[in-house]
Design a protein around this nucleic acid. Structure first.
Lengths: 229, 229
DNA sequence: ATATACCAATCATCCTACAACTTTTAGTTG
DNA sequence: CAACTAAAAGTTGTAGGATGATTGGTATAT
């Protein structure tokens, strides 16, 4: 006797899964508006409630965003970022910082290890922008360039999972730093380490890259401890 | 003029958030059945549709599980694990391994740094279980003990966020290893490093702990590369 | 041309009803 | 009394309709 499939997935989950596929496969791009409920009801051949429960699940996951009177738009392609950001916001800043540190250090080492395959365009551009912002002491510009710089480091690791984990934590830390910056005005003009880090990665010097990230985070940790603890 | 907060959150999100809080604060424990829809409708003072949309969002996120005719039970305390596991399963094993490595190394260093406050009970118990399993060459028992061992290391870091990130990745890696173990039968009886790692942490030797984790993962990476690449 | 009023589209919430499944209860039978 | 059976109650799943709230665009009037 053939055992029947334990139980068929609920209609809501089936619909949610299909919508998720349509998004992840790019059929509905980020920023794009998806069809209204009435249309989707007919396309999926389910009732209004069922469809709404599916959509609501994806809204909560951060994939979609609904606006009354307007419609529903795609907000992201994967659900990890939202979950991680929500989680990290509830954690202590020093804990988040330690995790971010672990990830960025690993990223720097991986980038240095595969330096021959790395595209350094973004890294150099961010470096230049940092330098310019530091020269004219434009704090806002420096932060933006700093964000691009660290992102380019992590992307250079070639590890997609690492990037997906790093960026949400990075955002959380930077929200904190933006508030902190009033207290320590000269904190973020520390540009020397940026240059050294790129040089180490370009040279394929794994240990040097790791040491520089160590140093960077030790300083950052000191500032955060002063403010938080 | 003070601009009022965008507007109030939708009822569904309010309810979902409250339920999440009730779970994360332990008011509803994992495995426990939550009240039926009718009761929750009255408690939150919302309609059935609104309540169901909230619950469905949490079901999709992996926090709850509903069974028709029976009820709804709490499945997990936080939503991060499910999202991360789903995500990591789609990634390449070597990428996942690198991230896990970064996290475990950081955990070992943190644990060594605060060795005076660490509770070593679990670690020693896992160590003993590993030894016993290795002695009688019981592979299944060794894996289970190994899982407990690595978990105890990460928990000793005292960093909750680190633990929450580590465990799902760990599960993914171990699913892979369980399949791999047939090929490399003697892989997991490598017990020496376990002992050395605990010794280093107990001595508060941060660098030694880091070096041992390095060594452990280099071996593991070698095996994985042989199988996957 | 600008501002106002109106209208249509769309999501938000509520309501009722029934179906499907599970658990409990009551009843029957041996 | 024990064990099996049938009925009932409880719970989630799905459907469909009605009304309110918000948004975006259109037509109108000045």
């Amino acid at each position: 006797m053939v055992i029947k499939k334990t139980s068929r997935m609920s209609l809501v989950e089936q619909v949610a899964e299909q919508i998720e596929s349509l998004i992840s496969e790019g059929h509905w791009a980020v920023g794009e508006k998806i069809p209204p409920e009435m249309v989707l009801m007919e396309q999926f051949d389910v009732s209004r409630n069922t469809l709404r429960e599916a959509i609501r699940a994806l809204v909560h996951a951060g994939l979609l965003e609904t606006k009354q009177g307007s419609g529903t738009v795609v907000k992201a392609v994967n659900t990890l970022g939202v979950a991680l950001e929500r989680h990290a916001k509830k954690a202590a800043m020093l804990e988040t910082l330690d995790v971010r540190f672990a990830l960025e250090k690993q990223a720097a080492k991986l980038a240095a290890k595969r330096f021959e395959e790395v595209d350094f365009t973004n890294m150099h551009a961010a470096l230049k922008a940092c330098q310019q912002a530091a020269d004219i002491e434009d704090r806002v510009a420096f932060i933006q360039a700093d964000i691009l710089f660290h992102s380019s480091i992590v992307e250079a690791s070639g590890n997609r999972l690492l990037c997906d984990l790093y960026k949400p934590l990075f955002d959380v830390v930077y929200d904190f730093i933006e508030q902190m910056i009033e207290l320590e005005k000269d904190l973020l003009y520390d540009h020397e380490l940026h240059v050294e880090l790129v040089r180490a990665i370009e040279a394929g010097n794994v240990e040097a890259a790791a040491a520089i990230v160590d140093q960077y985070f030790n300083e950052l940790r000191g500032y955060v401890e002063k403010v938080e603890g």
